[in-house]
Design a protein around this nucleic acid. Structure first.
Length: 480
DNA sequence: TGAAATGTTGGGGCG
DNA sequence: ACGCCCCAACATTTC
């Protein structure tokens, strides 16, 4: 029996952690380590909001690991160099980790695995993040799946066979003399300016926080998720996305918990309906499947015809982009969403679709600009989900919304926030307006409060402009 | 995980 | 009583 290093990355939990579990079962002593190496994820190193989350999640994991007996070691620098040095120092015979699926991480981890093995170490990786590996599912002819529904018919059907989550690790034996680590603050993850007040009042990063959210969802929201998940003013979604991104909870754990909930509901004579929520986990799986098979998509449209799309140029759209980012477009539902994002690091999914449609179609600004902004401001920023979401809205992705589906933000607002609860909360300038005037105040006969300007773009005209632009590339190349 | 244009239907006012 | 028109309220089609 020997010592093993468990290399933590985005699997910041003790329960259902296959790498940690494996180390515990096959080795006498365990050294858990987190290595801060943002350069290795370039150009998709975590943005500011995600770094804030990471700081607090590492803090929570450190406390939990210390309680279990093997404190988490923090290091920074080249991952391979750090792992080698640590393995030598503590005389470890193995390094274990849970897999990441971003192109840069895959390449790095493969190289590290090979180098460690050449050193004579055991190096093994595990799946802790997905219900199915991205390479497991194929179409009939062996191609990657490009349409969600058949993908999920296949992947969802395997769920009953999904193995139950692994139990939490409670007791670990540390290595005899722990190497020198860094204090958490030294990683420089927290913002210099204190803009994180909204994040702190909204979130509890860490494994315990994740479970609190899930239990809250099961108690309060799961029963009417299907009917209310599109209403941004209602807490009908789980808000687990950042916890999932950092691996504080696994999709397998969520599925198992929801199945238990459904079983309880059935006993109480309620019709349990957890399928709609689990289907959303399916979209997350699908996004990872797509990113794995099409690694160029974070920057390039999956549909090559869109390379010729006549987006506006940076010089022309700079001011509009800034207005969108700051929540000053003059379209209430768009501004509400962008301000919720800025304040809390999160936005309701329905509103994400609305603001994304507004950016790419009404403003004709490339989806990559929106993806980049979301990357820096979302606490749940995830390369697979973010890429898939933006390409879906822009119409250039796999199984994307057809480009001609242009959301009308006024209609969406009226349909999903008819009483204006969400609007009034995030755009307080408009709080005094009557419900009927809220969604499109520029049409109202009443005076609009001075600090709230008219829309930066006319909706009907910009919709037509977007459809014409789409017709351009459609006719030019026979859009698929 | 649309919106707008167009088509259809049916009730009610009215001459 | 009847035809005519208007116009919601849906349904269908098209982008």
């Amino acid at each position: 029996m020997t010592a093993a290093i468990v290399w933590f990355r985005r699997d910041l939990r003790l329960a259902d952690n296959p790498a940690l579990r494996h180390a515990l079962e096959h080795h006498e002593r365990v050294l858990p380590v987190y290595i801060h190496a943002p350069d290795e994820e370039a150009p998709w190193a975590p943005g500011a909001a995600a770094r804030w989350w990471l700081h607090h999640s590492l803090e929570a994991l450190s406390i939990a690991m210390a309680r279990a007996g093997a404190p988490l070691l923090l290091r920074q620098g080249a991952s391979l160099h750090q792992l080698r040095e640590l393995a030598r120092t503590v005389d470890a015979s193995a390094v274990y980790w849970n897999r990441l699926y971003e192109p840069a991480s895959i390449a790095r981890d493969q190289a590290i695995k090979q180098s460690l093995r050449e050193d004579g170490l055991i190096a093994e990786s595990f799946n802790a993040a997905l219900l199915a590996e991205p390479w497991q599912l194929k179409t009939g002819n062996g191609d990657p799946c490009r349409v969600f529904t058949p993908y999920w018919r296949n992947a969802g059907a395997r769920l009953p066979q999904h193995p139950p989550p692994l139990p939490a690790v409670r007791k670990l034996s540390p290595v005899a003399a722990a190497p020198q680590g860094l204090p958490l603050k030294a990683l420089g993850l927290l913002p210099d300016i204190r803009w994180d007040g909204g994040l702190r009042e909204t979130w509890v990063p860490g494994e315990a926080g994740a479970w609190k959210r899930l239990e809250q969802y099961c108690d309060d929201a799961a029963a009417h998720y299907k009917e209310k998940r599109d209403l941004p003013a209602v807490e009908a979604t789980s808000r687990l996305s950042p916890h999932l991104h950092f691996g504080e909870i696994s999709p397998g754990q969520i599925v198992a918990r929801l199945r238990r909930l459904a079983a309880e509901d059935t006993r109480h004579g309620v019709v349990a309906n957890t399928d709609h929520y689990i289907r959303e986990l399916g979209w997350r799986e699908f996004a990872h499947h797509l990113l794995y098979h099409y690694p160029h998509t974070p920057l390039q449209p999956l549909n090559p015809k869109f390379a010729a799309f006549p987006w506006r140029k940076p010089r022309d759209y700079a001011a509009d982009l800034r207005a969108w980012q700051r929540g000053r477009t003059g379209v209430p539902i768009v501004d509400a969403g962008m301000r919720q994002l800025w304040h809390t690091g999160w936005m309701h999914n329905r509103v994400r679709m609305i603001v994304a449609s507004f950016l790419t179609k009404n403003l004709l600004i490339p989806w990559q600009e929106g993806a980049r902004w979301f990357w820096d401001t979302l606490v749940d920023a995830d390369l697979a989900n973010n890429t898939q979401g933006w390409q879906w809205t822009a119409g250039c992705g796999a199984d994307a919304a057809p480009y001609f589906r242009v959301f009308n933000p006024v209609l969406q607002s009226g349909k999903f926030d008819s009483r204006g609860i969400y609007l009034r909360r995030w755009v307080p300038e408009l709080a005094q307006l009557p419900d009927a005037a809220l969604h499109a105040p520029w049409l109202a006969k009443i005076a609009v409060p001075a600090p709230y300007d008219a829309p930066i773009v006319e909706l009907a005209g910009s919709r037509e402009r977007a459809l014409l632009a789409y017709a351009d590339i459609k006719n030019a190349g026979g859009l698929a």
